[in-house]
């Protein structure tokens, strides 16, 4: 019954992630991709909220290719799971639907 949310905008300049966080519930998941991976930084505006969601059981993912491309691999919050495009597909299979926040 749960939804995968994808966010492709940086929370430093865009509020898409903030809206996503409002709507996200315990069995949902969030995938950060493209410029959305900047929101995975420990210093990002919504970092605390993301960590709180994670503690409630919401998995937070970031697309590894996008993270590496932007030199963020060793700068992102520890609770965020790095995934490949193949794992992105698997997530969309395991969740029931996808909402894209852009």
């Amino acid at each position: 019954m749960s939804t995968l949310h994808t966010v492709n905008k940086s929370s430093f300049t865009n509020r898409a992630l903030e809206s996503c966080i409002l709507i996200c519930r315990s069995s949902d998941g969030i995938l950060l991709l493209e410029d959305g991976v900047f929101s995975a930084l420990k210093s990002a505006p919504n970092a605390t909220a993301l960590e709180a969601l994670n503690q409630q059981g919401i998995h937070i993912y970031a697309l590894l290719n996008d993270v590496k491309a932007r030199a963020l691999e060793y700068k992102i919050a520890a609770h965020i799971q790095l995934i490949s495009y193949d794992e992105f597909v698997s997530l969309t299979v395991n969740f029931n639907r996808v909402q894209s926040w852009y």
């Binding site: 410029d35 290719n65 193949d86």
Partner: peptide
């Protein structure tokens, strides 16, 4: 926009997995 590239990679990945 990189979103088009993401869409393309997503298509490749789902086909690789037999969907």
């Amino acid at each position: 926009s990189q979103a088009s590239y993401s869409a393309y990679q997503f298509c490749r990945a789902l086909l690789r997995q037999g969907h």
